[in-house]
């Protein structure tokens, strides 16, 4: 394995191992996400509204809110005891650190989403089994963009004392294009329509994913330097 990939998988393994030991981020994210779904479930009279138009938004709000908790935790671990400096001292392309941390965030957010969807389905009475592959594809694409831009911005905000507040403030406005596209694509999928009808939205998500990955890849070194 070349040095770059070794660095990527080293950071990924380290992050997942730390999370497996403490389960702090996953527990907080999962509870928060499930709580949002439960609150929405009890707040809306699901018989009276078309949950197929409202539900996608609720689902992505739950994903977005819980995801921020994980992103914040991801970099607070690096700031404790100066561990981020150890990463900077390593003879490693800094973009490999970005990719490793982005992948670990992607895995953790993805796991929380996998826990959230069944509860969402039960409480809001939205059948998801029939469209599970399509829903998985939309969720993966949307979450990739969220993890990419979120990892970069979490790196920027982690140096601030107000990081818990700062990250959502800078992340959500940038994340809106993918959020809108993901909600629309999820609505199409949950309505039982073919995935091809969400083609434009999926293309938009894909383009933003590439842009956010590229920006993170190019500018993470500058973020670390700051």
């Amino acid at each position: 394995m070349n040095a770059y990939l070794r660095g990527v998988f080293g950071v990924l393994r380290k992050d997942l191992r730390l999370e497996w030991r403490s389960r702090e981020a996953m527990t907080a994210m999962a509870f928060f996400s499930l709580l949002v779904v439960v609150l929405f479930g009890f707040s809306f009279q699901t018989e009276k509204i078309d949950v197929r138009t409202t539900a996608p938004g609720l689902l992505w709000v739950a994903f977005s809110f819980s995801g921020v908790l994980g992103l914040n935790r991801s970099f607070s671990l690096e700031r404790e005891n100066g561990a981020l400096r150890a990463l900077m001292l390593a003879p490693l392309d800094r973009s490999a650190i970005f990719v490793g941390k982005m992948l670990s965030n992607l895995v953790m957010i993805g796991l929380v989403e996998a826990l959230t969807v069944p509860l969402f389905s039960v409480l809001l009475r939205v059948p998801v089994l029939s469209c599970l592959p399509q829903l998985t594809l939309v969720t993966c694409l949307g979450t990739l963009g969220f993890a990419a831009v979120g990892t970069l911005l979490a790196g920027i905000s982690s140096g601030s004392r107000m990081r818990e507040v700062l990250l959502p403030l800078i992340l959500y406005p940038i994340w809106i294009p993918i959020l809108v596209a993901s909600v629309e694509a999820t609505g199409t999928v949950l309505s039982g329509k073919p995935l091809s009808e969400a083609g434009d939205w999926l293309t938009l998500i894909g383009v933003f994913d590439l842009v956010f990955l590229g920006v993170g890849f190019l500018f993470f070194e500058a973020v670390l330097e700051e």
């Binding site: 380290k14 730390l18 030991r21 671990l77 005891n81 100066g82 400096r85």
Partner: peptide
Amino acid sequence: GFVSHESLLYHGL
């Protein structure tokens, strides 16, 4: 090789 005031280590590992 650098030793600083901080440990630069992950205390959960």
